Computed example of a mutant assay.
Amino acid sequence: MSYTNILVAKENSIATITINRPTKLNALNTVTIQELHEAFQELEKNYETRVVILTGSGEKAFVAGADIAEFADFSVEEGVQLAAQGQDILFNFVENLKIPVIAAVNGFALGGGLELAMACHFRVASDNAKMGLPEVSLGVIPGYGGTQRLPQLIGKGRAMEMIMTAGMVTADEAYRTGLVNHVVPQAELLEFCNGVAQKIMRNSPLAISKAIKSINANYKDGENGFETEIKSFGKCFGTNDFKEGTTAFLEKRKAAFTGE
């Protein structure tokens, strides 16, 4: 499948999606959001894809925000629809994807860009990265899950300050607060993320998808994370991956998981 604003490359069961709007600092517009949805949806259907790395083109920005020109004249109803549709087809979609998504944050991740990074399962930042949610400086609030995911990651007080001041944090500050898992030199960012992906791929893809579901359940209204974990744990016992993993352990060899 060909795209206008993103690039998709696959190698050794790792897919790399690159948001490719360098003249706009990879800002998100409706076309890019739709293309990202289609790419993630296609990769999830492909059983050969075990990990996805999401990044931005160039060295300046992961995603420098949403494309403000697209919605500057929106009505209240249009604003509600913009946020609801974006959360549904991309941000919540990525968070609940069955395969792990690593955000490789190269440069600026602002507004919708940081919200997209936070929707990924975890984040690795280049040492020149800067992150923030500057929406209140435009007279609006984060609308793609930022007010919900940022407190989950760094705590309520820090999130309140970060959102209300519209300030940016450095990669080191983001690491200190738990917003990102690792900080590496920019030249090593994708190589490092590929290394983490290789570690992930040693394990059962089916068990990983159950773990993602169970972890996310703790943050969803009306769901009991412990109950989801118990049921998901039990379902693992009926899989070929469980049989292979336990047999390999007892036979003192490496498991060859199939995701079944």
Score class of each variant (00 low, 15 high):
Val140Ala: 09
Phe108Thr: 08
Gly79Trp: 08
Ile208Asp: 00
Ala15Pro: 05
Ser75Pro: 05
Val76Arg: 14
Val183Leu: 01
Ala174Asp: 07
Gly111Trp: 01
Asn5Pro: 01
Ser137Asp: 06
Ala187Gly: 15
Met118Gly: 03
Glu223Arg: 14
Ala103Lys: 11
Leu110Ile: 14
Gln81Asp: 15
Val63Asn: 02
Leu114Pro: 03
Val169Lys: 04
Leu153Pro: 00
Ser209Glu: 07
Asp172Gly: 04
Ala256Trp: 01
Asn194Met: 07
Lys130Val: 09
Asn96His: 13
Ala255Ser: 14
Ile212His: 02
Ile212Glu: 01
Glu191Tyr: 05
Lys254Val: 12
Ser126Tyr: 00
Leu90Ala: 07
Glu115Ile: 08
Lys24Arg: 12
Ala27Phe: 02
Thr4Gly: 01
Thr246Leu: 10
Ile19Gly: 08
Ile200Gly: 03
Ala187Pro: 02
Tyr144Val: 03
Leu116Gln: 07
Gly145Ile: 00
His37Leu: 09
Ile102Ser: 10
Ile141Tyr: 04
Ser75Gly: 04
Gly146Phe: 07
Ile17Asn: 01
Ala15Arg: 04
His37Trp: 15
Val76Lys: 12
Val76Trp: 11
Arg253Cys: 02
Asn218Gly: 00
Pro100Met: 08
Met168Glu: 02
Glu35Thr: 11
Gly225Ala: 11
Gly178Asp: 10
Asn106Pro: 03
Ala256Leu: 15
Leu189Ala: 12
Thr165Tyr: 07
Lys10Pro: 02
Cys236Ile: 06
Phe233Asn: 09
Phe74Tyr: 15
Ala9Thr: 12
Lys210Leu: 14
Gly167Val: 02
Asn5Cys: 06
Ala117Lys: 06
Glu11Val: 11
Glu227Lys: 15
Glu188Phe: 11
Ile17Val: 14
Ser126Glu: 03
Leu138Glu: 06
Ala174Met: 03
Asp127Phe: 00
Glu38Thr: 15
Ser232Gln: 07
Asn224Met: 12
Gly238His: 00
Asn5Glu: 13
Pro22Ile: 13
Phe233Val: 01
Thr177Pro: 02
Ile102Pro: 05
Ile230Asn: 00
Gly222Pro: 06
Glu35Asp: 09
Glu95Tyr: 02
Leu43Ser: 13
His37Ala: 09
Thr177Asp: 14
Val136Pro: 06
Gly234Ser: 12
Met160His: 13
Asn240Val: 12
Ala27Ser: 12
Ile89Pro: 05
Lys243Ile: 10
Met1Asp: 05
Asn92Gly: 13
Thr177Val: 13
Arg149Cys: 04
Ile53His: 12
Val94Asn: 10
Arg176Leu: 13
Ala207Glu: 15
Thr32Lys: 05
Val169His: 04
Val51Asp: 06
